[in-house]
């Protein structure tokens, strides 16, 4: 029997059927057809794996819940953020208020660039994060104290993101809504082993001081 004939016959079988005596005899002596038959049967087995349809609405519901669960998780971060902020204040005093001086082997530096544009209560605060290398997973936190709010994030006082940073200058523009009392904006970056923090008092109708 020729291999081509054996393989043609094998391909017509399903998993419950056995090859004819003639083909079985050929398989005993032909490694190529034997391997072909094994691969073919494995494929039949795998094709028989039926996946049921998901419950109606499950996928939509799961996608929507992901956003809601994330929102709740970020609210839970507040106490932790406050504890970290207290210790960062010390680091800030050591390195200067708005700008890092020639600190010993600084990996990154952060500068705040006061923004002149003011639209009623809205101020755009531009923060320049200077990085000495690419970072895949920088952690950036924004804390809004007292009467400050980030536009689009109603009532959220602490926000955090993980983001890649490029080597060089990375610009972050924060649209801050300033209430009657004003308040303090605090931005913290964690890049690898290094943490840097900035604090900036903001008041209505004034330029950032410092």
């Amino acid at each position: 029997m020729q291999c081509i004939d054996a393989q043609r016959q094998l391909q017509s079988l399903d998993l419950d059927q056995q090859p004819s005596a003639l083909v079985a005899e050929h398989l005993r002596h032909c490694n190529q057809c034997h391997d072909f038959y094994e691969d073919f049967r494995l494929r039949l087995h795998l094709e028989s794996f039926a996946v049921p349809e998901p419950d109606p609405g499950f996928l939509q519901q799961a996608m929507k819940q992901a956003g809601q669960r994330q929102h709740r998780a970020s609210l839970g971060h507040r106490a932790w953020t406050a504890a970290v902020a207290a210790s960062l204040l010390v680091a800030l005093l050591l390195v200067g208020r708005w700008q890092l001086p020639e600190a010993p082997s600084p990996k990154t530096a952060m500068q705040l660039q006061p923004q002149a544009t003011s639209e009623q209560q809205l101020k755009e605060v531009r923060i320049l994060i200077v990085s000495d290398q690419d970072y895949q997973d920088a952690h950036i936190q924004v804390a809004l104290h007292e009467d400050l709010q980030l536009r689009g994030y109603d009532q959220q006082k602490n926000l955090s993101w993980r983001t890649p940073l490029k080597e060089g200058q990375n610009l972050l523009t924060l649209p801050i809504q300033i209430g009657q009392k004003g308040g303090q904006l605090e931005v913290t970056s964690r890049l690898g082993m290094h943490t840097h923090s900035l604090q900036l008092p903001l008041a209505r109708g004034e330029q950032p001081s410092g």
């Binding site: 956003g67 929102h71 320049l128 994060i129 950036i140 536009r151 689009g152 994030y153 993101w161 983001t163 940073l165 490029k166 060089g168 200058q169 990375n170 610009l171 972050l172 523009t173 924060l174």
Partner: peptide
């Protein structure tokens, strides 16, 4: 060259 980080500053 300045890399903008605004893309991830997207409201919830």
């Amino acid at each position: 060259s300045v890399t903008s980080l605004s893309s991830w500053l997207t409201p919830a």
